[in-house]
Amino acid sequence: MNARHGSIRAKRITYKTIVYVVCTFLALLSIFPFWIMFMNATRSTYEIQQSSISLVPSKYFMSNWKILTGKAFSPMTGFINSMTVSVGVTVLAVYFSSLTAYALMAYSWKLRQAFFSFIMAIMMIPAQLSSIGFYQFIYRIGMTNKFTPLIVPAIASPAMVFFMRQYLMAALPLEIVDSARIDGSREFATFNRIILPIMKPALATQAIFSFVGSWNNLFIPLILLTNKKKYTMPIMVSLLRGDIYKTEYGSVYLGLSLTVLPLFVIYFMLAKYIIAGVALGALKE
């Protein structure tokens, strides 16, 4: 009896040890590139060229900062522009994807299945080529240097609709909708006040992904935003790389580091919803 108890305890200890060792290893692996990036932000271009990886800082932070701000990089403008675009994209994408998914999940309408198949099909179109058509179109209608073409298309985010649908399918008992109706709640209000809170973990997850994706998005903004005042942070970093002959790598890494900092903040803010979790059960009890 005791021996069996002991072996169970030994097993549990081994299990816990493995969990902590693996998680710590993975965490260190995740910190590594950030560490290199921050270290390189304090090193001179030539130090970086001589050996691109260093675990210890150097003393060129201020000179990198001077090079950075001496070029087209103005952190405040970039930050505000990036924020506008990313917040806009995230809010629109998360809200309207949930709404669309709710339409697919809670109602019975004739084109429902067809509409879902259609959304899936759009999601599967390779993005490579339709981007050419996209910016030709934006140039033609004269919408360059505006944030609209970067933000508004987010209303139609097929992959996110798909996720929200899958999430609702597992997490939304239709009885809740019915009881809301009996209480006299109108459909739109039901969605806003009952469904959205249920979806918090899903919303937070997708908000993070959408924010990160939009914040790091380079190629389309690079082509559509050609006016200095509209540059986002990644565009500014890309400008620092200028041409290969005389790239100031130290300041590039500093720019990259600055770009990533706001992402940390946003991520930490949203992460609590994933970590704590507002589970459905809590609502029912």
């Binding site: 910016y135 140039y139 380079l218 190629f219 690079l222 082509i223 050609t226 890309s238 400008l239 200028g242």
Partner: peptide
């Protein structure tokens, strides 16, 4: 009015092409 787009990310030519065509 200057527009600077780095070549390193492959966007200078597409943007310039669109601006010339447009």
């Amino acid at each position: 009015k200057t527009t600077i787009i780095a070549t390193t990310d492959g966007a200078y030519q597409p943007a310039l092409d669109q601006a010339l065509i447009g």
